[in-house]
Amino acid sequence: MHVNPDDLLTIGDVVRRTGVSASALHFYERKGLIFSERGGANQRLYPRHMLRRISLIIMAKRLGIPLGDVAAVFSTLPGHRAPTHKDWLRLSLAWKQQLEERRRAIEALEHELTGCIGCGCLSMKACLLLNPDDSLGPQGPGPVRLQSTAPTRRSRHK
């Protein structure tokens, strides 16, 4: 059987192939992440190449990448034709940079936590995470020292 990336799949076919609920597909479509056409009886029909986009959305969610970031990267892809290898390469390079930033932030956090928990110093004066007399309070909410080592995040669009 020859599979054409522009073949149209029913929403039921897409749900079965991806494991994503129909309501999630509708949500992704409203957000401009995926596209469908209307067939007879106003039924949604998705080009087969949308399966790849949906797979990337699933992976992005597992990696904690906000849908706003996914939308920004997808905006560089053609919407109504199958992306080329060059299109996917450009997308993967953009995500690779984001993932490398995340990896560095996680490694920095891991180092701080390992040093603090694993140092065995038992002296809270030496702990990098200590905040005596709430001296860091004026600098903002949350773990200020740890946040300063993390890469800045783009705004989230859910």
Results as ranks from 00 to 15, higher is better:
12 G>L: 04
15 V>N: 08
47 P>R: 03
14 V>A: 10
31 K>M: 12
48 R>A: 15
37 E>H: 07
15 V>P: 00
73 V>P: 01
31 K>G: 11
53 R>M: 09
79 G>K: 15
72 A>V: 01
48 R>F: 15
52 R>W: 07
35 F>L: 11
16 R>M: 07
59 M>G: 00
60 A>N: 10
80 H>W: 04
42 N>Q: 11
63 L>S: 09
72 A>E: 13
63 L>A: 14
78 P>Y: 09
73 V>W: 01
73 V>G: 06
62 R>H: 05
28 Y>H: 14
51 L>D: 14
53 R>K: 12
78 P>M: 12
63 L>K: 06
15 V>Y: 01
52 R>P: 01
59 M>N: 04
70 V>I: 14
51 L>Y: 08
52 R>A: 15
68 G>T: 08
13 D>W: 01
16 R>Q: 15
42 N>E: 08
66 P>M: 03
25 L>I: 08
27 F>E: 03
14 V>S: 07
25 L>A: 07
69 D>M: 08
57 I>E: 02
66 P>Q: 04
28 Y>R: 14
73 V>I: 06
26 H>A: 05
13 D>L: 02
12 G>R: 11
26 H>K: 11
34 I>M: 11
35 F>S: 15
45 L>H: 04
40 G>F: 06
13 D>I: 00
32 G>A: 05
78 P>Q: 10
71 A>P: 05
36 S>Y: 09
70 V>Q: 06
50 M>Q: 15
22 A>H: 06
47 P>Y: 02
30 R>G: 03
30 R>C: 01
57 I>A: 02
18 T>I: 01
51 L>G: 13
47 P>Q: 06
46 Y>M: 12
75 S>D: 14
21 S>C: 00
38 R>V: 10
30 R>F: 00
51 L>C: 13
74 F>I: 04
15 V>E: 14
38 R>N: 07
17 R>V: 04
41 A>G: 07
26 H>Q: 09
62 R>Y: 01
65 I>C: 09
67 L>C: 09
27 F>K: 04
45 L>D: 09
41 A>E: 12
54 I>E: 05
48 R>D: 14
15 V>T: 13
52 R>G: 09
30 R>H: 05
44 R>S: 11
78 P>D: 10
27 F>D: 07
23 S>H: 07
64 G>R: 03
57 I>M: 02
49 H>E: 10
43 Q>N: 12
